[in-house]
Design a protein around this nucleic acid. Sequence first.
DNA 1: AAGATCCAGTCATACGTATTACGCCCAGGG
DNA 2: CCCTGGGCGTAATACGTATGACTGGATCTT
Lengths: 351, 351
Amino acid sequence: MSLVGRPTSKDVAHEAGVSQSTVSLVLGGKWRGRVSPATAHSVRGAAERLGYRPNQAARNLRLGTTRTVLLMVPTLTAPFFGPVYTGAARVAARHGFGVVVSTWPDDAAGPADSPFAAPDEAIDGILASSMAVETLGRFRETPAVMLDSGPAARSGGSVAAAGVPTVDFGVPTVDFGVADGMRAIAGHLTGLGHRRIGHVAAAVDQWTFHARAGALAAAVAALPGGRLTRSTCAIDVTSAKEAAGRLLDGPDRPTALVCDDDLIAAGAYKAARARGLDVPSDLSVTGFDDVLLAIALEPELTTVRLPAEELGAQGMTALLDLLAGGRPAPRVLPGELIVRDSTAAPAAGTG
Amino acid sequence: MSLVGRPTSKDVAHEAGVSQSTVSLVLGGKWRGRVSPATAHSVRGAAERLGYRPNQAARNLRLGTTRTVLLMVPTLTAPFFGPVYTGAARVAARHGFGVVVSTWPDDAAGPADSPFAAPDEAIDGILASSMAVETLGRFRETPAVMLDSGPAARSGGSVAAAGVPTVDFGVPTVDFGVADGMRAIAGHLTGLGHRRIGHVAAAVDQWTFHARAGALAAAVAALPGGRLTRSTCAIDVTSAKEAAGRLLDGPDRPTALVCDDDLIAAGAYKAARARGLDVPSDLSVTGFDDVLLAIALEPELTTVRLPAEELGAQGMTALLDLLAGGRPAPRVLPGELIVRDSTAAPAAGTG
DNA sequence: AAGATCCAGTCATACGTATTACGCCCAGGG
DNA sequence: CCCTGGGCGTAATACGTATGACTGGATCTT
């Protein structure tokens, strides 16, 4: 629908037999005590009849706002962030906001300042996913909500034993309950009888991976006879295959591999098969995230589902609240353990 | 970077010692014969010094434009469209355009009119992917470019034998060379010695899938002794597994399964394994698209790589050209056959 | 009854830009 | 010497909205 020919508030005013100001007052919702209910009703009727939609450009100019928020994500090609964007954009659109995306440049680990380029458009707020709050750099002046960035994003925040943040000063956050998710995996595996567990960890400096490692280590340490080995890799199949291979070839081979990501689990499958190990009878494997890949693998992958689209939606809701002057409470979205076919009790005599 | 405090063209004018009009003239590039080169230079210097960025809201209001384009895609959760968006948004941002996304509603196959909701914001143009031009419905009045929609999108267009469109009236298009890609797959398989080929086709009414089916059928028909069977499914693993199973259980079992999508190929793997067939020694399998999944599967999948991000970028380039009054020529982006480990010569005595 | 208060709206204005119409100055032509 | 015209730039304006200042009449207060 192009812009030309669209009815303006002046057209609505003419139709309703009032002035443009009145239309603006009524449709802006600030007419209590200024316009009679009857007039307001007739204005709304006229607007409806003409299909009036306010001109955002004019509104933005007048209000000094852009009704645009910036979504900062590491990348959009990874299967995880598409849904995050979708959820955020859906909520934003419902409130007349647009979303522009800025992705982490390929030459990451850049200077001390923010590695993000300044967006061409001015923006009202920032939704930043999967990064430390310091990374915002010069953007810290702009209202922001951090997603999947952990309680450290809150200045002075502290974390209770259960992993739920108890202090909510500073930047609002929306996180996944990854620690709980990892505990669920650990519980599932130990419940099956596993004691020697290998962790194929993502060598990525993000809160979510630190939290996963910490939760798993704690869970295994608390288990009598529990023993954890660890190897790190990039989040791609070949790197993951190597890392998993190192664990499988090491002394005291683990009976289960806990992977930080579904894609890493795919690499673990390959390492296992290359060594003639069957999943799950010889080796249990778990993933994390539950992306499309999880059920495409064979056997289908036991993993933790993270509601990525919900993360985007909740984050945008919080940001809009913040922009409206609110003080959104931090939220934690629980992950859900999805048990499929990649986990089983360890072979007799090897556990 | 928030809006408040940003320098305006008036500030630049003051800094350069000229009027606001002159600044606008110079920075708008239409100053030939109206402003002296010296003055123009000093204006540009002042703008640079102050870090001036024009206020898009004001510009949009003045010009009656929005500098926003609508990207219509079936979904953003499928791994294929993330990159399309990325490519489109990158090019758009470089020209000061934003991109809003509209996805096909879940209750697809709706009324005769376009199933897309009207966007909240007014838009300047449309980039529509993977749909028939008729689907645009009431949006046809808006300048649009069709992606991955086939030559049918061009009114009165015709297609030469090689699959390259020769007429370019009507809506500009950017397509993949899927027919060539499918021919490459067919050539690869028949070169290995396969004669009985099964096609696990996506039951999706999109040009790209019709083109794939047509090209494969023609290629097999042209082959002495070639025999093609066919089964259709939705683009998900379980549906694909069933469809592939029907072909494998049928008479005269094929030695190779050509799948319309990498995800479908994952289903074919499962059908094969469920029947004790090894890929590739007992059964060759090919995919299409080359998404992340292709190398996560085991064996790694022979497939055709489609440059999705490039599709978005080229499409946006064409749309911006169109909006600037140009008449962009149709483009076809070639697919590339990626031979991996899921294809081999048929077992002796079964070919 | 006369001023004060309130109701129900309207007027005027500013946001920052692009553009049209106009003005000043100097050189050149008749 | 006056008129013309080109070169260089400015004043004025409109885009559509939101909102503070204002107004005419009705109601209330004492």
